[in-house]
Design a protein around this nucleic acid. Structure first.
Lengths: 246, 246
DNA sequence: CGATTGTTTGATATATATCAATAACCGTGG
DNA sequence: CCACGGTTATTGATATATATCAAACAATCG
């Protein structure tokens, strides 16, 4: 912890208190090893809307997201889409076991990435032994998150889904530093994704998402400024709704 | 591969061609090391209906399923249930990152398990280096399966969900040896889980599951003998339905 | 063999989807 | 800065897939 250093720092970005949606490797790299790490990687800048990982394509590289956010999704032949998750600062993408990517990743706004050749992972893990444990740990925490998403999609109502989503967005990583100081008061969140994205994440339609937003507004649980900024006014109540308590 | 030996064999059971729903460690143990492995483990027999892992409880042990099948699920406070998956021969259970189990595991029929202390995993991985790679690989393949479950629960119709489920059950591991020889012909599967279990796995109600079974029967896609045995008569069609092609 | 539990089928209700019309937002160019 | 056009979001009316409620039926087990 004390001697460690972020990969994010190694590639020029700072990591907050994020706990990585996918796989984060905070604090497993010693300062002395930074040059070696940087040598293995290349920086990539992806403009808004561009896909940098495509389902089914050869999984040549994996990425660490160092700026911006991305949506990860799967498609069915007829166009139905399920968003798997939203990647943020520090997340690992494209570490799938197989030789083809299992999902598509598209930049939500401009995104910066640190790219590694897929074959370099062996070298990296050998060189930075703590990295391995970290990868495992984060992979299994990712599995736990997936489990709660199954509950959300299989058993929760639209209200519960949106409340869950909003609570999820309220994690420190997603909120500006000044704002997550007083976690009890109102909390303003940016929502870089469209209503369509939220719908495809929650297994709903845009109309249902929109109506549920309006409902929450009428109930005084949230307020909005445009479609891409929410203020959570009653985190406790939202959490209760998210868990089916009211 | 050639020199390897199954953990399942080490604890007295044979592993078919299963590719492990959770985390399998087939073929990573050398014969010479078997005694050491057995020394670390203890056998457990769980009667039908008994929970051997409970969500929220201290994660002291992890298990390898060596006989029978189990259902893994999460509950909401009001009793809504989402089945995460059905564990089968060779699956690893309870390897969560945190110190509490993230789901409950209940025996579907009698189950035999090989139990390891959670603290022994470090020793095991050190002693059997190939185990580590295998664990990682299987964990990430588990993540891929989870992704397709998100699509199922978020975007598929009841028809598509049940077809997907039936196809899933038709993997070699679940079928008697004689039957998966001719993969093109009719394939008879045991369904050890109740309609309620299937419903909670697919995010539906028992009634909808039952009606969809009947529909498939009327369409000549399947036939049943009692509620716990299905014969798939048209795997291709079912696969098409599962993927939204008809 | 009856009693109990689980499954299937039927009738109806409802949450959410779909279709359709406004309304708000956003970038652009005057 | 404002007007404009296109996009995205909201709201409304209606349809529909699935849930819910209820009954008959089948399987299981003493």
């Amino acid at each position: 912890m004390e001697t460690g250093r972020d990969l994010m720092e190694a590639v020029g970005e700072r990591c907050g208190h994020c706990s990585g949606r996918s796989v984060s490797i905070c604090n497993v790299i010693d300062d002395a090893d930074l040059p070696a790490l940087v040598a293995e990687s290349s920086r990539v800048i992806v403009p808004s809307g561009r896909c940098f990982i495509e389902e089914g394509c050869a999984a040549d590289h994996f990425y660490v997201l160092t700026g911006g956010r991305a949506k990860l999704f799967n498609l069915m032949v007829d166009g139905r889409r399920q968003i798997i998750g939203f990647a943020e600062l520090g997340d690992f993408l494209g570490l799938a076991s197989s030789d083809a990517y299992a999902f598509t990743a598209e930049a939500l706004g401009d995104v910066t990435l640190c790219r590694f050749s897929h074959s370099s992972i062996e070298r990296l893990v050998e060189r930075f032994p703590r990295l391995r444990g970290r990868l495992q740990k984060e992979a299994s925490s990712e599995l736990v998150k997936m489990q709660s998403r199954l509950m959300l999609l299989g058993r929760k109502t639209a209200r519960e889904r949106l409340a869950t989503f909003l609570i999820e967005q309220a994690r420190p990583c997603c909120v500006y530093a000044e704002q997550w100081r007083n976690e009890n008061g109102p909390m303003t969140l940016p929502l870089p994704m469209s209503r369509m994205d939220i719908a495809d994440y929650l297994g709903l339609t845009i109309e249902t998402v929109s109506r549920t937003f309006s409902l929450f507004k009428r109930e005084g649980l949230i307020s909005t400024k445009g479609a891409s900024s929410v203020t959570l006014l009653a985190l406790g109540n939202l959490a209760d709704i998210a868990n089916g308590l009211e």
